[in-house]
């Protein structure tokens, strides 16, 4: 793993169609959500843009998707987000987006994120 990167998981830890949340460091304020969609991994901060500062979205550990598994869902008030783009497609934060997190994959399949992600409580901007 290169300097300034934090390892989250192995790519096989997230089965096709599933989502999981990982704390980049044990005392980081927010999870990073990783979703596997058709073998492609997408990652966002666990931080719904509805309320100022952003708030966590799952209703139980790793429960980030809606019942059909079609969207990332905020279980606070039901906002739905496009898995590929992070854009809110329904609910109170229409027109806003989840904060995307760039993922790096090592040859052994380790998935890591930039270290500054661990200090990021809220969505940017």
């Amino acid at each position: 793993m290169s300097a300034g990167q934090l390892r989250l998981c192995h790519r096989d830890d997230i089965p096709e169609g599933a989502a999981r949340g990982f704390l980049p460091l044990p005392d980081a304020p927010r999870n990073v959500i990783v979703v596997n969609r058709g073998g492609q991994l997408h990652a966002y901060m666990d931080s719904c843009p509805h309320y100022r500062g952003g708030t966590p979205m799952a209703w139980r550990k790793d429960a980030y998707l809606d019942a059909e598994g079609a969207h990332i869902a905020c279980h606070a008030h039901g906002a739905l987000f496009d898995i590929e783009t992070g854009a809110c497609v329904s609910g109170p934060c229409l027109g806003r987006k989840l904060t995307r997190v760039p993922l790096s994959e090592a040859p052994d399949g380790s998935i890591s994120v930039p270290a500054q992600v661990a200090g990021r409580a809220a969505r940017e901007s």
């Binding site: 966590p56 979205m57 139980r60 550990k61 279980h75 008030h77």
Partner: peptide, 30 residues
């Protein structure tokens, strides 16, 4: 500890003076 997501709290409201602790739910409400 069962894995559910705290949303706000614990704390104590001013109006009503009630202690509070809010959690996300699969019913789409707190």
């Amino acid at each position: 500890r069962k894995g559910y997501q705290s949303f706000w709290g614990p704390g104590r409201h001013k109006f009503g003076s009630n202690w509070f602790w809010y959690f996300n739910s699969p019913l789409g409400v707190h």
